[in-house]
Computed example of a mutant assay.
Amino acid sequence: MSTSQTESTPQSGQEAASKSGGFFRALVARVGVQNLSLIVALILLVTLIGSQNQNFFRPQNLLSIGTAIAVFGVLAIVQTVVILLGGLDISVGSMAGLTSVVSAMIFTAASSSMIGIASALLLGLLCGLLNGVIIIYGRVNAVIATLAMLAAYKGLAQLISGGRSQGYTGSDPIFTAIGRGTFAGIPILIWIFLLIALATHIVLRYTDIGRNIYAIGGNPVAARLSGININRYIIGIYAYVGIVAGIAGVLLTARTGSGQPVSGSEGLELDAITAAALGGAVLTGGKGSIPGTVLAVILLGVLSNGLTVLGVNSFWQNVAKGALLVVAVIIQQRRSGQRAVGLPA
């Protein structure tokens, strides 16, 4: 064998390794480290659960996961937008509960599902605007303001419903189509979640509105000096959150067949915040993505369903969600390089 032939072999190996490394780096750059880690975690979780119980892979169970994540999934999408802006909305679950009750009660009174749905969306819009006005003109921290409104909206839902489920929408064709209908074999609930996620992603990624939201969350002083009306954006985003919370309330009503003041909406705000943080939304604002949140929503849905399929006590689900939120925030702090509170620099 000639010298040129023997030298070509290691060069070919190096070129192949270089191409392989280049492809991997391009993949990481395209998808993102956060999203790749979520995909790997999802694959491992699905493999683990499926190996313990084959019923997990049944089509009916997989569709059940999709319908279960739809309600908190839409709230996680808008929670991501609020976090990108540098805020937080802890009242989304209570808004969903309130609008759920109102949609069912007005449907019963007016015998019209369209009026009930429109009323829920309008009420959600008003609640979101109220949150934004309190934050801006009351000069109240977003966490405190929405924490207070969480209690207020929950109390209002219990007052007008007497603390009980209201109405019955199971016989209405529109509510039935939303809650149990399918399109192309996929439940309508999942389509609504995906459409809201896609629309929000497009706005954030490809419009000036999205770029301004990232700018406000990243550096509000610089954003203000560049001419961005921060107050208008904050009120507008919280109004958008309210509308989507109204949609979540309608989905909740359609899925359960009645207006749910508390039981169906309890803990939705924790699920939404956990999914947004797990998906890479930095709680200080300016960083995050909708695809990451969607992956995190699916991961949480698989985890919750998997624990149920494996017969694990349902109370452990909240423990797991809380632990995931803590882990997500710790990872964010480590990656940002911020000094831990109480530790020397």
Results as ranks from 00 to 15, higher is better:
191 W>S: 03
211 R>F: 14
206 Y>D: 11
199 A>Y: 13
195 L>C: 12
186 I>R: 11
179 G>M: 15
181 G>W: 04
208 D>L: 11
194 L>F: 10
194 L>H: 07
176 T>E: 15
201 H>R: 12
188 I>L: 10
197 A>C: 08
207 T>V: 02
195 L>Y: 06
197 A>P: 06
204 L>N: 02
195 L>A: 14
203 V>D: 00
192 I>T: 04
211 R>L: 14
189 L>V: 06
193 F>Y: 05
189 L>T: 05
183 F>L: 14
185 G>A: 06
190 I>E: 06
202 I>R: 10
195 L>F: 11
191 W>A: 04
184 A>L: 15
199 A>R: 11
186 I>K: 10
199 A>K: 13
198 L>M: 13
180 R>D: 09
198 L>C: 11
182 T>H: 15
182 T>C: 11
200 T>V: 03
207 T>F: 01
200 T>M: 02
210 G>H: 01
196 I>S: 03
198 L>K: 08
212 N>A: 06
200 T>S: 01
178 I>T: 07
204 L>D: 03
202 I>W: 14
197 A>M: 07
209 I>P: 08
192 I>M: 06
198 L>T: 12
199 A>D: 12
176 T>K: 15
188 I>C: 10
177 A>C: 07
189 L>D: 03
183 F>V: 09
199 A>Q: 11
198 L>D: 09
